[in-house]
Amino acid sequence: QTKVAEHPGEIWCDSLKLGNLQLVSKLKNPSDSCSVDVSTVWWEVTGCKESCIITACEFTVSLWKSLDNWQWRKVYTWHFTEIPVLQIIPLWDACNLVCVALGHLEIREIRLLFCSDDECLKQSLVKSGNIKAVLGLRHKRLVCSNGTLHDHQVDLMTFSGSGRSKEKQTLMSPEETILAFAEVQGMQDALLGTTLMSNIVIWNLKTGQLLKKMQIGNSYQASICHKAYSDMGLLFVVLSHPHGKEIESMGSPIFQLIVINPKTALSADVRPYSLPQGHTGRFLDGEVKDTLAAAVLTSGTIAVWDLFLGHCTALLLPNSDGNWSFVKWSGTDSCLLAGQKNGNVFVYSY
């Protein structure tokens, strides 16, 4: 038995109803340019710190304040003129600060967005160059890797409360291209990364040391790490394979959970997260929060997995306005933010 909800965005849930998506609100960005990303951020609006939605179009980034009854009002918009916005980089526990990545196909600039004391919108250049991977961390920190093989650099930046200054620390480079970073739940000074050559690397964020470089096999080439969990001396890592080949009969897993013993660098597969029968597609974009993973697929559908249960718990099919193109979890509650290129952002409670 499958439950199919009404428009907008057909929702499929499994018969056990272990997960459910319910549409609670819709934001319409009237900008003519293409929407590229969404996230949530803590912001002090009219003297009150609250969780706001932040949306990005090609040349604008807008902050939305919540009103009553799940309605949203746009309060600030930052404008960009030369390089388009690629993604929002939230700094998870920061207030009144958010970063954005700008570029064409690859990230060329990272900018910090904030407001001055007199409520003027400000932006400052944090990093420029050939940026390969970036992640916002807790405690107003941002990690990014840039440069090519010979001048490869991994920087950890810490921003002041107001965003006016930053401290920079260099992490030891694994001397190969880093594709993605992930925080390690349960080990706050650890940072994990995946590399182009199928390695997983671990840093100590306090000392900047590169603790381990571990080969995870050719079947994981160019994997993206989304989240890691440290438990009982082992590291559990959620990966996706944006370049994975789809096997027609069963499809390739969208996410994969592996386990690594960091002491021995030995690893094993734990569980694949695949699409239900009859659905196909490859990973385009996605996010893992706590035990929930969401992905936008090449088919234009959004799929949600409960990592503990091990199976897909909800599917959000494209609606009459078109395919889904980006998806994020809200920072404060179990809401799924689903966006389309035309500026529509739908908020679903899970």
Partner: peptide, 23 residues
Amino acid sequence: CSESDLGPISLNWFQELTSEAPP
């Protein structure tokens, strides 16, 4: 997988790797 697949497990792996890694 069992402990024999992954080798000996240490609950203090982070501290141990930090002391073993180059500064």
